[in-house]
Amino acid sequence: MTTIKLTASVLAITAIAASAASARDAIRIVGSSTVFPYTQAVAEQFANNTGAASPIVESTGTGGGMKIFCEGIGENTADITGASRAMKASEYELCQKNGVTDISEALIGFDGLSIAISRSNEQDWDLSLADIYMALGAQVPVDGEWKDNPYKTWNEINPDLPAVEILAYGPPPTSGTRDAFVELAMHEGCKELDFVKSGDFDKKWVKENCSRMRTDGPFVEAGENDNLIVQRLEADPNAVGIFGYSFLYENLDKLKPVTIEGVEPNADTIADKSYPVSRPLYFYVKNAHRGVIPNLDEFLEEYMSDDALASDGYLAERGLVGLSDERREELQDAILDGQNMEPKS
């Protein structure tokens, strides 16, 4: 494995080096609530190993983290952001506009978008993607017409499902989990509907008409704190929650997964993509902050270590579905060398 090289431009370094003597001690990390537990685990391991100040890790959501990350360079800005989707072209342009021009992109592994229910619920739940869309979409087919969603109970959309009220706690629009859920579950579920198939609607129609979650009660935005969803599921055993697999994995004593298309989320089904709603996880780092913000280089070395990322590493123990050995080595070299990401278009 290579060692970290300083690759940021002299101009970028100069912009923050003037205040290097008073630079903050703690690395600042923002972003995805799904990536949060992995980065927090690395932060704790790094602090234990080195005795340095533990990085400050904030769960702001992917979209919120991108805005903070792209504010500019300097000790008053974030060093790293986690993301449960790839950086968008608009976010890349914002970064470039604000002088964040040298960024490394790390695809650290994979995650499944889990739907879970309290263990006190005695039924075994299995949902199709079409069931998910019909339960949570703002508009659905009703008697051959596209209308506001009237369905209140699960058995109204599928007689094989329980006769209980539809109540799902999920992520807000600022969350990468929400973006991924809309793309992987809502859009794909919408495409499975006979109304859409028979109408021969294209991808543009699906995106315009099948992206909105209903706002009349059955879907509740629960914020970026997934612990609140667990509390609500424990209070109502018929409610379902939507979050990353890692959080389900950490709470299997309280929650059980809802299978999707008959497939349960686990490390194997997420890795081989047989679980229908799996996605990559990322973090992004400002290369201009390397060598200026204390301990940032050393923290990245810990994050890229085999101890963290290998199939038997401590992040896998927390639910991360890791990369192949070859892809992991490529990632390690790219991040430790400070390789600049490809422009987003």
Rank of each mutant, 00 (worst) to 15 (best):
E44F: 03
E44I: 04
Q45K: 15
Q45C: 03
Q45D: 10
Q45E: 14
Q45H: 14
Q45R: 14
Q45W: 06
Q45G: 05
F46L: 04
F46V: 03
F46I: 04
F46D: 00
F46H: 07
F46G: 05
F46C: 02
A47F: 06
A47Q: 10
N48L: 15
N48C: 12
N48E: 15
N48T: 14
N48K: 15
N49C: 09
N49Y: 08
N49I: 10
N49M: 12
T50C: 09
T50R: 11
T50K: 06
T50G: 11
G51V: 14
A52H: 11
A52G: 05
A52T: 09
A52P: 05
A52Q: 06
A52W: 07
A52E: 15
A53M: 13
A53I: 12
A53K: 14
A53G: 07
A53S: 13
A53R: 08
A53W: 06
S54I: 13
S54G: 11
S54A: 15
P55D: 03
P55L: 01
P55T: 02
P55M: 04
I56R: 05
V57G: 01
V57P: 03
E58L: 14
E58F: 06
S59V: 06
S59K: 05
S59P: 09
S59E: 01
S59N: 13
T60L: 11
T60P: 02
G61D: 00
G61R: 00
G61L: 00
G61N: 01
G61A: 03
T62V: 12
T62N: 12
G63K: 09
G63P: 00
G63C: 02
G63F: 09
G63E: 14
G64F: 07
G64E: 01
G64W: 00
G64N: 12
G65K: 08
G65S: 08
M66E: 10
M66R: 11
M66I: 07
M66W: 14
K67H: 13
K67E: 12
K67I: 13
I68M: 13
I68Y: 04
I68E: 12
I68N: 12
F69R: 02
F69M: 05
F69Y: 04
F69T: 01
C70M: 09
C70V: 08
C70A: 15
C70L: 06
C70Y: 06
C70P: 12
E71F: 01
E71Q: 15
E71A: 15
E71M: 14
E71C: 11
E71V: 08
G72E: 05
G72L: 03
G72M: 03
I73F: 08
I73N: 13
I73S: 12
G74M: 10
G74H: 05
E75D: 15
E75I: 15
E75R: 11
E75M: 14
